[in-house]
Amino acid sequence: MQIPAPFEYVRASSVDNALALLDRHGPESRVVAGGHSLLPMMKLRLARPDWLIDINDLFELDYLLVDTVPNNGRVLRIGAMTRHTTLLESDDIKRLFPIVIDAERVIADPIVRNRGTIGGSLCQADPAEDLSTVCHVLEGVAVVRGPAGERMLSMAEFHRGPYETAVAQNELLIEVRVPIRDDSGSAYEKVERRIGDWAVAAAGASVTLAADGTISHVAVGLTAVGLDRNVTEVEAVLVGQAPTEQLFVEAGRLTSLACDPLADQRGPVDYKRHLADELTRRVLRAACRRAAASISDITI
């Protein structure tokens, strides 16, 4: 069996303690949460930290709460140590952000989801990682704490590219804040070779409807197709319009043009572009349907 190279292990007792440990042990130290991204890399000896700082005791970061915060209004605050299973089983999430449920159902498998955390997923920043897209689409804010205090980063600021985030070596992602919008719906759909596999491609969308049934706010994001930002190209087309199949088709077309996938064992470029198109249409349809369902007098 594959075995990691030797390292020293220390368990952090609090966020401050974790930050102090990161500071003390320097660049060759790594934080481990669920460990389901890092430990396999260590077993392959592609990652060889000298120090592993275990933050599983930071129960202070395992929470989900609806809150009102200055400048953000009503938000759902998700502690970085919240496990995937907790997200999947949360009634608040089910009600507010069905996109998270859609995504969580297809992230790895139920047992991995018992260990894996939202913070770990976002910090790994794998281009095929589903929650990154979800947080982009929901326009989440990453709360990062370091020796100099806390900073708030938009997902675009947080997520710098494949496997790269703005979290410095001596910082910790501690929370994701997701703004709560009324009259909204969201959805995520992924194509995978088999359950539990990384995405061939996936798409997520969040839609807010105005009182007249037109789209007042929309975000579309993609997974595993070479685009680590929201597909801003579609927003101008969709906002202010009544949701129609024709509109979704146009959004899908624009999305497939915006993405930049690579061919691999999961499929050729044109297939992935096609999926960007197809899945965008599907998630917009579902998100609009869900938004409409939250407003009783609008049906589409």
Binding site: G35, L39, I111
Partner: peptide, 19 residues
């Protein structure tokens, strides 16, 4: 390699004994 950790199934090849 699944075992129960605090009653929940985990894959024990991806958990350190130290954890």
């Amino acid at each position: 390699c699944v075992v129960l950790m605090d009653g929940q199934p985990v894959k024990s090849c991806t958990v350190l004994a130290a954890m």
